[in-house]
Design a protein around this nucleic acid. Structure first.
Lengths: 196, 196
DNA sequence: CGGAATCTTGAAAGTGTTCAAATCAAGTGG
DNA sequence: CCACTTGATTTGAACACTTTCAAGATTCCG
């Protein structure tokens, strides 16, 4: 049930059987059907969610009422509003399943306790946070240094299968432009491909 | 010498005297004069740098040859190319002092050892990475959801004193637009203020 | 003081958005 | 399983925001 998570953990830290047992006993498994929410704007984020399968998006609603996707979470990644989670504050974000998905939940109520019982988890989450931070910095660089067209091309090259999985309008939002513009890009690319 | 760092640490974890002593013995203090570099593109990042005083910028050179600032580091923040540091890879970034500064360095050679001797540091850096990650996510949101003008106004309101400290062209770069455009914004604001 | 770095100004050009309408795809209930 | 409704994508024209380039003014620092 938690193999994906346990495998993932073992790539960063080495837990003994007892620790693993404690961890598993604190986890909660959940099937999440497409379009349902793990978190809505205004709610406090009560869990840290590990994606076992499927896909989630973290988004906010902008001043002019449109959805802006900030992150996707797929198998092997944690997704959470850490700020809300840590400080018990209402979140600005929505976390929604893009596909039927499965997750492992560490809820707020057991989080601190878990770190006390398994101190090595501090190292694991240090590395996870570092990874997420590095990914965010890379994204900032992409947003600041490249045009919409370059971002689209690069992302399509780097994650061709993921691009197939999600609706185009979500991809456009994530990459920071409009669905109409993405449509134009696709038409342009198709055309240049045709004329070769 | 390291008060800023030790105070900062004590806000997140409680070290005993021995641990503190070990930590201090592994740190290296350095004065860094304005415009000198802690890291250059192509080099491997050999230290994790805590800013005791002063200010640094982390930037890259874009395809068209201009500097793009991704981060500032001021007193109380760590600055480092984690990706390069952890994996011994050449960095894409420059880290340069914006002012005469002082830093505490944890170098690569003692980093792992330090976590072994003081496991509690895993918690501290977990929280630091989480904080840096949250800040990055906030910045991504800002870049995706707001116009250049809004970004400028918001940043100026949130960090009025910091804005005074740095050259305008660095602020423009950090916020993701050109110095010329910033100049225009300032003129516009000045004008609307005058006509009130 | 002199030279380099920084900031300002304005016109022209580019990139991406908005809006509205048409087409296409997909999910649902009868 | 088809018909219907809703959701997603496409297209094009007008517009808005930001950049580019070039020149001039200003400030900083040795």
């Amino acid at each position: 049930m938690y193999e994906v998570l346990l495998n993932h953990l073992s790539r960063y830290i080495r837990l003994d059987d007892l620790e693993r047992e404690i961890l598993v006993s604190k986890l909660r498994y959940k099937k999440v059907s497409k379009k349902s929410y793990l978190l809505r704007q205004g709610q406090t984020c009560t869990g840290n969610f590990f994606v076992l399968s499927g896909c989630f998006r973290l988004f906010t609603i902008t001043a002019n009422g449109t959805e802006q996707i900030l992150q996707f979470g797929i198998s092997g990644w944690w997704i959470c509003d850490n700020h809300s989670f840590e400080n018990n504050l209402p979140s600005e974000y929505y976390i929604q399943a893009v596909e039927d998905s499965e997750i492992a939940i560490i809820s707020k109520s057991v989080y601190e306790d878990l770190f006390e019982k398994i101190p090595l988890l501090n190292k694991y989450f240090r590395l996870m946070m570092q990874r997420a931070y590095a990914a965010s910095l890379k994204k900032i660089e992409l947003l600041l240094c490249t045009s919409a067209e370059e971002r689209f091309n690069q992302f399509t090259n780097d994650f061709p299968d993921f691009v197939q999985r999600i609706p185009q309008y979500m991809l456009a939002s994530f990459l920071g432009f409009t669905p109409e513009f993405l449509s134009m890009l696709r038409a342009k690319i198709k055309h240049t491909a045709d004329t070769n």
